[in-house]
Design a binder for these strands. Structure first.
Length: 591
DNA sequence: GTGAAGGGCCAC
DNA sequence: AAACGTGGCCCTTCAC
């Protein structure tokens, strides 16, 4: 592909080019930066293209003159980027949004993200890749040379090849969007695409904001936990080696407690009926009969917290901001959920000793808000089940209400055991639990488990029917959808019973889990609109939870704003069931 | 040494 | 025989 492009490095050239571009509906948009992290480098090039003409703006000469965040010479550029129109077409717009926000002081407005669109269309197909070269090849059938991507963008003089590469990336965006839009339309993905695009800037902003972790607090807690781990390790070592001591001529044999093979051997030597795997839920039932198993589970839960989050999490504290700027993937799962890494702040253990180290900075406070039972409310909405909906409408403890209905007794007569059955089933049905698993987790016999499940589904006929239909539907259609139209595709052979069973479970779970993700994303958009007018800063999200940091002088208003955004978002998708959001104002990430 | 696979546990 | 959905990250093991 030949591209007509123009290198711009002064005010006059920029003004002239932008004059031509500002009335366009769409512009291809890209940046070249000297680093991947906006805290580590600067923006070298900004490229804009209407498909016919492409401009490559070299920011270096502007930077040499002063602060590019405020200089009047760049006002036109900042405006075209922040305006809703023209819509900027970018691949992984979060990246460019972070850089323009941090270095140009400009919040990107009007986004079409070809990466997100490609992921929506692939709908969970693991074989598809979504880098720009692959996406271009898939939708346009043309090859894109990315060899200059990692070249030195800080050189005084950029090579012709570098500039041409930069121009091509932006120019490709315009025809690429046209092809992608066709596919979004034919797949019924326009609404969800809009939902996702609206979410890009809130997430970019959140990543720049970061989440404050108090390092001293963390180290202190770590010391305590390490001591505890050593103690438990020693005890476990003693209990396990009792079984192999006879085999060792030298007395006590050392067992690597982190080795599944060695631990399994040792357990067998002690006469423990070790199941196929030694995963927690398999071992749990044995814990009450075998103290060594209980000790092992204790060791593993302590060890996990140390190994996974130990010292390494401190390395993620940015020296400039003193905060953790984790990496969020907007479509991390095919259900639409976010995933998070480096570090995964969606996976911090619940224990207060860990969470209390995540807090507001001096002078601020946190607002912690989470949806109450959002997935079950979505299931109630979808299934239209009168009893299930009533249990929510009553406003009482949901699991108790459910237990009362299932066991046909008064709420006040529900025993803790009955509530526990109901609770586990309520959660389990969302995943397509089977009676075997239910029996194992509750400790009742298989037959008893089947009985309880039969009662449960007899109470909630509508729910039962919806789940069956969802399972059948996915086999017919080979896809499942959420309320926003988000899609997940399934591939299986007619006779592959395992895959079919798995697809059925997915067909039940994906619409629920995915609609919950839709709602959270919608809430982030609504929240962002009001946050920009206040000091409130989004700092973390965990699937059904949003955490905002705000000046301690005005937490009540921020809390109301957050709750309002979350409730409104959910009500766009859930109408028959009340939505409940629990809000806490706290200095620390604890409840 | 490095990298991938397997197994395990954390979050929701 | 029978698996309860989505992720990330750790450790061990094993191949090169």
């Amino acid at each position: 592909m030949e591209v007509y492009f123009q290198l711009i490095n002064d005010e006059e050239g920029l003004a002239k080019a932008l004059e031509e571009f500002k009335s366009e509906e769409y512009l291809g948009f890209d940046t070249e930066t000297t680093a991947l992290d906006p805290f580590d480098g600067y923006i070298r090039l900004v490229q804009l293209s209407n498909g016919k003409n492409t401009i490559v703006i070299d920011l270096k000469p502007f930077m040499d003159k002063g602060d590019i965040k405020t200089m009047p010479e760049l006002e036109g550029l900042r405006k075209i980027l922040s305006d809703e129109k023209p819509i900027k077409i970018a691949h992984n717009a979060k990246f460019d949004a972070k850089w323009t926000l941090h270095h140009l002081g400009t919040e990107l407005g009007g986004i079409f993200d070809t990466l997100i669109a490609s992921q929506l269309i692939a709908a969970g197909d693991q074989d598809r890749r979504h880098n720009l070269a692959e996406v271009t090849s898939f939708f346009l059938g043309t090859e894109l040379d990315k060899s200059e991507q990692v070249s030195d963008w800080s050189a005084d003089e950029l090579s012709h090849s570098q500039i041409e590469y930069a121009a091509k990336d932006a120019a490709t965006m315009v025809p690429l969007r046209e092809k992608i839009v066709e596919k979004l339309k034919s797949d019924g993905l326009i609404r969800v695409a809009k939902l996702e695009f609206d979410c890009v800037v809130p997430i970019a902003t959140m990543e720049l904001n970061g989440f404050y972790l108090n390092a001293d607090c963390w180290r202190e807690q770590l010391e305590k936990v390490k001591k505890e781990q050593e103690k438990i390790a020693l005890e476990l070592q003693g209990m396990l080696s009792a079984g192999v001591a006879q085999a060792s001529l030298f007395g006590v044999a050392e067992i690597n407690l982190d080795s599944k093979a060695q631990v399994t051997d040792a357990l067998k030597n002690l006469g423990v009926p070790v199941p196929e795997t030694t995963r927690g839920w398999q071992l749990q039932p044995l814990a009450k009969d075998y103290p060594v198993v209980e000790k092992l589970l204790e060791y593993r839960s302590v060890a996990k917290a140390i190994t996974s989050f130990g010292e390494t999490i401190l390395e993620f504290i940015n020296p400039e901001t003193g905060r953790i700027h984790a990496d969020f993937r907007q479509i991390g799962a095919p259900t639409g959920r976010f995933s998070c890494s480096k570090p995964n702040v969606q996976q911090i253990p619940h224990g207060e000793e860990y969470r209390k180290c995540f807090r507001a900075e001096e002078g601020n406070t946190l607002i912690i808000a989470d949806y109450s039972q959002i997935e079950l409310r979505i299931l109630a909405e979808f299934s239209n089940d009168e009893n299930f909906i009533d249990a929510f409408k009553s406003g009482e403890d949901f699991h108790s209400s459910a237990a009362a209905q299932v066991f046909n007794i008064k709420s006040e007569e529900v025993t803790p055991e009955q509530r526990s059955f109901a609770k586990r089933l309520n959660f389990g049905v969302v995943y397509g639990i089977g009676s075997q698993r239910f029996a194992l987790m509750t400790g009742v016999s298989q037959m008893e488990a089947e009985n309880i499940m039969r009662r449960y589904f007899a109470t909630y006929r509508g729910l039962d029917e919806w789940l069956r239909n969802a399972g059948n539907r996915v086999i017919q259609e080979r896809n499942a959808r959420t309320a926003s139209g988000r899609m997940m595709r399934f591939r299986f052979d007619e006779d592959d019973r395992k895959k079919i069973a798995s697809a059925k479970r997915n067909g039940k779970n994906m619409p629920i889990q995915g609609t919950s993700a839709d709602i959270l994303k919608r809430a982030l958009h609504l929240l962002h609109q009001v946050n920009t007018k206040t000091s409130a800063k989004l700092v973390n999200i965990v699937h059904d939870e949003i955490i905002v940091e705000v000046n301690e002088s005005e937490p009540e208003q921020a809390a109301r704003n957050l709750e309002q955004a979350m409730v409104s978002a959910a009500e766009e998708y859930v109408a028959k069931v009340p939505i409940k959001v629990d809000v806490e104002i706290s200095k620390e990430w604890t409840k």
